[in-house]
Design a protein around this nucleic acid. Structure first.
Lengths: 193, 193
DNA sequence: AGACCGATGTCAGTGACTGTCATCAACGTA
DNA sequence: TACGTTGATGACAGTCACTGACATCGGTCT
């Protein structure tokens, strides 16, 4: 057995989530989180860059998953279709954990600092998607737009999914939102020259 | 003459921008900003909620402008068209100050904290747009999507505009990006059921 | 004159985050 | 077996963003 209890990182993550839910994000100090995990404040910052990051480390694997899905899409697919497939794949992963997503979401919704972090994580995903599209030969305005728009669709679908228990599964909501996107952008008056 | 030099807020803003450019955002302390403006640190925080906000207070008027443009759009216009008009209007406003936009952008690009703030400001604009659309009778998935997608288009156009001096005016880039959006989302394989 | 107001200064905090050095079990190696 | 190395942690001091409370003092109103 090691010198310390195993899984320090996991204990910190768990303690942080609990405290953020119990008292709110701002009312929780890093020292309290570390204390509940049986560690010191300094150690917290060795595992997470800052107090917010403990809620967002999962976005790394998410990014890899998205990128892989775009890389694996058939050549014949249109760019937006590649993105749609990737977003779908992620949606199916998250679809399992609706309750835990809702808990996490309630914490984030209550604090603007956390919302900022969430947005930059999404922007990172979008940039990764756009880069992958470019590597597959999609030229630039289209690549950025497809990635950006695809993530916007995901965002809208995800919000409906966590916000209303009466809604169907995430996968289906994403599909519906992509259809809605098509309807919205096909507005006959879009050409305004 | 008043007891103090006038325009404290403006002096703080000016001093902050200068210092952020000279030394970088992180290397600048609020005390230094206040000192250059002939004020104290405490006074800085009376004018700006935090060290970043000094770069972003302009987004308030921007929001009002966007919302007004959507409110003034003709009833016959499709939702995405209302958003496109609003974004165009804003684009024409900013189009004048390309150099100052570039300076500001270089500061923001160099610091993730500032990028986070920028993103949440954009999200606020998107939410305001969506709310205005709803008030005009657009139902919800469509309203959110039109707002979100419209701002994504703006973002892409804006990035090209500030990033490459060889690009045409912002107004034209926004028009082109909306066209590109239409092309991208019209991909024949979008229906993936 | 005197009461009040509003912008600023002063000062003493709290808490996030960092740099640095010490500790000590585990592990490899002579 | 002894010994050097490594890696995760603790201890501690420090910086800086941000806040609350109270003092100051021209300008303004009555």
């Amino acid at each position: 057995m090691g010198r310390w209890e195993p899984n320090a990182r996991g204990r910190l993550e768990q303690a942080a989530l609990e405290l953020y839910i119990e008292r709110g994000y701002e009312q929780t100090t890093v020292a309290e989180i570390a204390g509940r995990a049986g560690l010191t404040e300094r150690t917290f910052f060795r595992h997470f860059a800052d107090k917010r990051e403990v809620l967002f480390w999962g976005s790394g694997p998410l990014r890899e998953h998205l990128v892989a899905a775009v890389e694996d899409a058939p050549d014949a697919a249109a760019p937006i279709e590649m993105v749609a497939r990737a977003v779908q794949a992620v949606g199916e992963l998250m679809g399992e954990r609706r309750e835990s997503a809702r808990r996490r979401r309630s914490v984030i919704d209550a604090n603007p600092e956390l919302q900022e972090r969430e947005l930059i994580k999404l922007a990172t995903l979008s940039a990764a998607l756009a880069g992958t599209l470019r590597r597959r030969g999609v030229t630039d305005p289209a690549a950025s737009l497809a990635a950006e728009v695809g993530l916007a669709v995901f965002k809208v679908a995800f919000e409906r999914w966590v916000g209303d228990p009466a809604q169907p599964g995430l996968s289906q909501l994403i599909r519906e939102s992509f259809d809605e996107l098509k309807a919205v952008t096909a507005g006959s008056r879009l050409q305004q020259r």
